[in-house]
Design a binder for these strands. Structure first.
Lengths: 377, 377
DNA sequence: GCCCTAAGTGAATCATATG
DNA sequence: ACATATGATTCACTTAGGG
């Protein structure tokens, strides 16, 4: 069975599995309009850049630079490009789940128009991310700075969509335990990774490196998510999705690209499940009520709690509140009160004494969570 | 004689020298309209970003972030912001010499709208240049990537203006004899350079670092050129222009900013001709994210790591964390955990097998650093 | 003076569950 | 819908103050 499907298939076979992990042939907007609404988790789009190259560009040795001059990258005017951009971004928004996010990559030729249109359509920009190239093409004429980066825009479907996927802990743990920044460094796609035809010519002029797509997916998707690429090209999105245990849907007009992508993806071996697990955030862990520690005997009513420097002391009551003098309230409220703050995380603020050592009550919560996990498993 | 002038002066004293190296008080567009056409070589503009901030933001220690909430940054809608942008860019274009260039700095909140408007008005984009901050503010809630850069657009007056100034050779010489790239690394403006009032409060919320302006002027102006800044603020453009032997013209509405800038510029000593050399951002060895080794194919997900004596074994995951049994975390965190220590250098602790030999993963980092060095870190 | 620690801060579109 | 309670979350650098 071919992984390449045509438009007809979608209407006659509405089942989700029918269009997952396939390349849909046709015009981007027409195909998107036939997909079910709110059906994909993330969109990665590498639209035509609308490069406005004048004549041919030559290197100092007079060899001609193989520039992007394909028909699909030609637009009559900014208005025509804007209309095209607006149309596909609108079609994409319909297909995106309410808490889905979209990535669009571009260069200074088109990214400003794309970004403004995204804002106009109600997408809410989360970050612009800069792909810094380790090995960019030089500027041969020496009339500008070396064009050494491209820009990606990452956006949620709308302003109020707060529950999008961002694997913050994974990104941080993978980046020397500090937050992942908005500037990423990767080589351009060359060597064995670059698809070539039988004549050794590159199959697609703007093939993106798999490393870039891998970070995009590791940051903003979970295993099993569906990633849509409306300008599939040589299929980097599909290749990385398959390897990382995500589903893909590709849209592409050009049969040459489809064939190359199909063959490429068929050769990909998915990673083992264990290698795909993500670092989990604390906010994903089960909530534990302070009172449940008392109920389960981890801490006794009457226990004295202090802050780490023993400036304040509180007493635990059987109902899960704590008291300081005449005042009583939750661990959080009382922690905030003594410090004169609006808010406080009582779990990390309050400590108890255990064999002479002062420990945060958060340690008791961890114990409780292990018990919960053991009971659930 | 004061260096601060009012609108009246311009019409009655048309001589060029009358408005050079002065701050013109008033609304940006009204003032620009009174300047002679085609009279400035370069424009540097740092317009309002139109940040759309919600409520207050607190750090994890509950201190409040001093956000940009000034009236001048508030716009009713994207439409209102676009109208403002179009108006000042149009006024700026009239004042710019035919072979002049313009720089505009912004963040993802506004830069896409600015860039699209520039293209609409016929400006010809030469580069987008990324200012990478060495010390950006963190993302305190862990909901996005750390916003670690801002974007500058560099453009000529129109497509056919080929004879703009670009000091290619001096940029190259200042950059280890390779072409200056489109991504620049500088610290944000802090310390002694940051203007403070008598109470120690910052005078202007968005003062730009002089190093950034210096590179802009060294790249795109010649000594004696006139640099116009329509949003003069605390006067960084004027200070750098004076030091580098360029003329400036500032436009600013706020008398507090004008006073501060005036005093600041008065204290600047112009450099000797011979001293006009570029300052380059010094930097320690670049940080390498463990995940980048996976992304670049230097190590595969699923690879088993051990310590040098094979007492412990861990498994690499695709997101750049490693697992031991049920536990997962960064290479450093997990190295510390198995040894019962607070900290551990995972790069030297963990090893992988290469042709029968056990090698520290630090060797792979060295390989990665070579690529980073090529990119100018 | 130096060394160490604590406190402060920078263009920020920075929650979620429950009632 | 709104209000309330819980509780998750920071990097690089500068400055001030104590020893």
């Amino acid at each position: 069975m071919s992984a390449v499907r045509r438009l007809e298939d979608l209407s006659s076979r509405p089942h989700r599995a029918e269009w997952l992990d396939t390349i849909l042939k046709g015009d981007c907007i027409a195909v998107l309009d036939r997909l079910p609404e709110k059906s994909v988790d993330v969109i990665f789009a590498d639209p035509p850049y609308n490069l406005q190259l004048g004549g041919d560009l030559h290197r100092p040795d007079q060899s001609k630079v193989d520039a992007v001059d394909d028909a699909w990258d030609q637009f009559e005017s900014f208005q025509a490009y804007d209309a095209f951009t607006r149309a596909w971004l609108l079609a994409a928004k319909r297909v995106l789940k309410p808490n889905g996010t979209i990535w669009v990559i571009g260069s200074y030729h088109n990214i400003f128009r794309v970004g403004a249109t995204m804002q106009d359509l109600g997408y809410w920009l989360l970050n612009d991310v800069v792909w810094r190239k380790t090995n960019p093409m030089p500027n041969f004429r020496g009339r500008r700075f070396q064009n050494a980066h491209e820009t990606m825009i990452w956006a949620s479907r709308d302003k109020d969509a707060k529950n999008y996927t961002f694997n913050y802990e994974s990104m941080k743990a993978a980046n020397e335990d500090v937050q992942m920044r908005s500037d990423w460094l990767f080589p351009i796609c060359t060597g064995a990774e670059r698809l070539k035809d039988e004549n050794g010519k590159k199959v697609h002029p703007t093939q993106k490196p798999e490393a870039l797509l891998a970070r995009v997916m590791l940051a903003s998707t979970k295993p099993g998510d569906v990633v849509l690429d409306p300008f599939f090209g040589s299929g980097t999105t599909g290749a990385v999705a398959k390897r990382l245990g995500r589903h893909f849907v590709g849209v592409e007009r050009d049969q040459t690209y489809i064939d190359a992508a199909h063959e490429r993806i068929a050769g990909i071996e998915p990673l083992e499940q264990a290698a795909l697990k993500l670092m989990t955030a604390k906010r994903a862990e089960p909530r534990v009520a302070f009172v449940s520690l008392i109920e389960s005997g981890l801490i006794a009513p009457g226990t004295r709690l202090t802050d780490s420097k023993k400036r304040w002391t509180a007493s635990v009551r059987a109902d899960g509140t704590i008291t300081i003098g005449q005042e009583a309230g939750s661990i959080h409220r009382m922690g905030a009160r003594v410090q004169g703050l609006d808010a406080c995380n009582g779990w990390t603020f309050w400590h108890f004494e255990d064999e002479g050592a002062l420990k945060p009550i958060d340690e008791l919560r961890k114990t409780a969570r292990q018990a919960i996990a053991a009971a659930g498993a």
